[in-house]
Amino acid sequence: AVAAPIEIKFSHVVAENTPKGQMALKFKALVEERLAGKVEVAVFPSSQLFGDNKVLEAMLLGDVQLAAPSLSKLQKYTKQLQIFDLPFLFKDMKSVERFQQGPDGQKLLSSLESKGLVGLGYLHNGMKQLSASNPLKVPADAAGRKFRIMTSDVLQAQFEAIDAVPLKKPFSEVFTLLQTQAIDGQENTWSNIYSKKFFEVQPFITESNHGVLDYLVVTSAEFWMSLDKELQVEVKKALDDAIAYGNGIAAEKASEDKQKIIDSKRSEVVNLTDAERQQWVTAMKPVWAQFEEEIGADLIKAAEASNQ
């Protein structure tokens, strides 16, 4: 008799037409093509199965096999991943890619193992920009203003470093709060600013590229170890190909969405001169030292080195 195919449930929180959604579908297609009869993939988009906060727990319980939460969500599993939130660490997505594919980035994938998770690969969203109800040219423009952040100690420190007020608010409330200016601004990637319609309620977006917002494709160690070596290699290969495909879409979408925002004329894009940008760097960089102990000085150095 033939053994029943192994089922992989891939749960994510975004729509199917996003880079992540496309990547998941690509993975499903590749697996079905290459591993027909051996592995089956079911994709559950739009938080149908679990939200980002609970999906990792469900994975540990063995009810989900793949997920791609944002790196910030993983910080409670390993402090080292906080590195991706450090402001002005990476110059652009190329540097991010170099670091992630390099030896240190790859080693980080296994940093979750003690918590029962295995990182399988990095998936891009893009570089973060600062949007606000007033133009942000220099850090002083942000002083005293309220910014919505995702739960992350680094991001909190980052806004405190420029004397701004970081606020944690559930995503469901953010749009209204920005619209009514109860909160002044937020940080996000071009594609999120576009898809979440933040550009409609944020008249100014500073192209700061001050940080990176990426995802980590994870699985549970228990599930991963249960696959035989050959299958592991095949699945990993399909995933790598799907991630490359998704990253391609993400890069395209970042520039497309930026253009769409400019074309909408709802929001003005603020460009920084080198001198202005340097002011932001100077103001925010002390955050590195704050987290050096938790992340590891060597790792930060390695990341910085990926900028050439």
Partner: peptide, 14 residues
């Protein structure tokens, strides 16, 4: 805190 004193309570939501 937010409206009157321009500050947040970072643990409040949780």
């Amino acid at each position: 805190a937010r409206f009157g004193f321009n500050s947040g309570i970072h643990w409040a939501q949780e």
